[in-house]
Nucleic acid binder design. Sequence first.
DNA 1: TAAGTGTAGATTGTCAACAATACACGATTC
DNA 2: GAATCGTGTATTGTTGACAATCTACACTTA
Lengths: 230, 230
Amino acid sequence: MAAPEGMFVLEGRPTAQLIADQLRELIVQGAFSPGQQVNESALASQLSTSRGPLREALQRLCQEGILVSKRNRGVFVLELSTQDVKEIYAVREAVELAAANTLLDSDSEQVADTCRELKGIIRNMAKQVAASDWQAIARLDMQFHTAFVSGTGNTRLIRIYETLAAESRMCILSLEVAYPRIDVLVQEHQQILEFLEARDRSGLQQAIKRHMQKAVEDLTASPEATGITA
Amino acid sequence: MAAPEGMFVLEGRPTAQLIADQLRELIVQGAFSPGQQVNESALASQLSTSRGPLREALQRLCQEGILVSKRNRGVFVLELSTQDVKEIYAVREAVELAAANTLLDSDSEQVADTCRELKGIIRNMAKQVAASDWQAIARLDMQFHTAFVSGTGNTRLIRIYETLAAESRMCILSLEVAYPRIDVLVQEHQQILEFLEARDRSGLQQAIKRHMQKAVEDLTASPEATGITA
DNA sequence: TAAGTGTAGATTGTCAACAATACACGATTC
DNA sequence: GAATCGTGTATTGTTGACAATCTACACTTA
C-alpha cells in the first residue's frame, strides 16, 4: 500500500490540543464576553467531552494568555486594557520585523511563494470589504499576517504569532463595526506585499511599523465606545 | 488591619501552573534526557499529586513547546536539532532587540533600575566563573537576559522570553562543560550593559546580534560532541 | 439601617477506577 | 530462517464521583 493518506487516522493530534483550538476559535469569534467565567461542566457537555480533557485544554489557553486562571475560582476570558493593546502590537511589530528580515535573507523562491499566498488573501479581503463582512475581514486580516510570518518557516515564531493573532482578533472584536476606514486597510496590506516583492528591506520595515502604529491608534482611540478597559 | 501581607495565602496560583513550573525547572536542569518519555503515573507520585493535575501541567509545557505530545503515546522531552537552535536564537534576537528599543524609549529611571539589576547578575556570574560552576553560570546567563527583557515591563514579551530561556538552557545543557571561553561570555554581557547605560541604540543592537550569533556558532559548532541532533 | 454571621448552592480541585491504544515478545507458517 | 500473526503488558485517554472552596443571600444583632 502506497500510503494510507486520508484513511481515518481519526485526528492524530492530541485531544487537548483539538479542544483548545476549537475553544480558541470560539473565543476570538466572540462567543464569550471578556471577563466572563468559563463554566467547565457546561462547556464540557457542550463540546461533548468530559471535564478532564476540557480542563487540559483550558490550561493550554491559560498558558497562551487568552484565558486567566484564578485558584478555586475558575478560568476567565481575558479582559483587554489599552495597555494590553499596546503590548500586543509591540510584540507583533517585533515578530513581524524579525519575519521580514528572515524572509529577505532567504531565497527568492520562498519569498515568491509567500507573496502568492498574500496576494490571494488580499483579493479575498477586497471582496469581503465590498460585502462589509466585518467578521470575515478580521479573519483575513490576521490570516495575512499569519501567512507573512509563516513564510519564514520558523515554527517558534509561528507559534508565538498564533497567540498574538488570537489576541489581536479579540482586540478587533471589541472594536466591532468601528473598524477603521477599510480602503486604507487593504491598501496598507497591499503596500507590505509590494515592499516584500521588491525586497525593499527598510521600506518593508517602515510599512510594518506604520501598520502597527495605526492599528494601536484605531484600537485605543475611543475606549469608551469599546469593551476595552481604560 | 493594614494588609494581611504574607498571611498564608498558601499559593494563590493555580495548581497546574505550580507543577508546570517545577517540572520546567527539572527539565532545564537535565533531570530528563532529550526525547525521553514522561511517565505520568511515576511523575505524579514523585511530585506527590495525581495524574489529573499532572496532565494539566504537561499540557501547559506542550503548549510552550518544551514537551511534545503524541496521541496515545504520551509526552516526550523536546529533542533539539541544530535547526531548533537557530530558530530559538533567531526569536531571542528579535525579542531582545524589541526589548532594547522599548527600554531606550522609556524614561531613564526604568533603565537605571534594569542596569542595577544586570550589574548584580554580572557580578555573580564572574564569581561563578571563578568557581567553574557551569550549572550556575547557565542559570545566571539566562537570568541576565530575562532581567533585560523584564525591564520593558511588557508581560507578553516577558512570558515569551521565559519559554525561550528554558529552551536555551536545554541547548546549553547539551553543550555541558563545552561552554565557550568564559571570559568572553562575561565580557559580552558587560558590553550589553554598557551600551544600555550609555543609551547607545545601534551599539546595543549590534552587541545583541553579535551575542546571539556567537551563541549559535558555539552551540552548532560540534554537533557530534553534544546531544543535539543534526 | 448597617455591619457581621451563618448557611445553601454552585463550581472548581482532586482522585481512583475503567476503557482504549500501542508496543514487545513469542508462536506460527511458508 | 524470515516474515507474519496473535497475545500480553504497560501506558495513556476518559469518565464519574467525591472533597474543598468560594459566592450569594437571608438572618441576626447592635
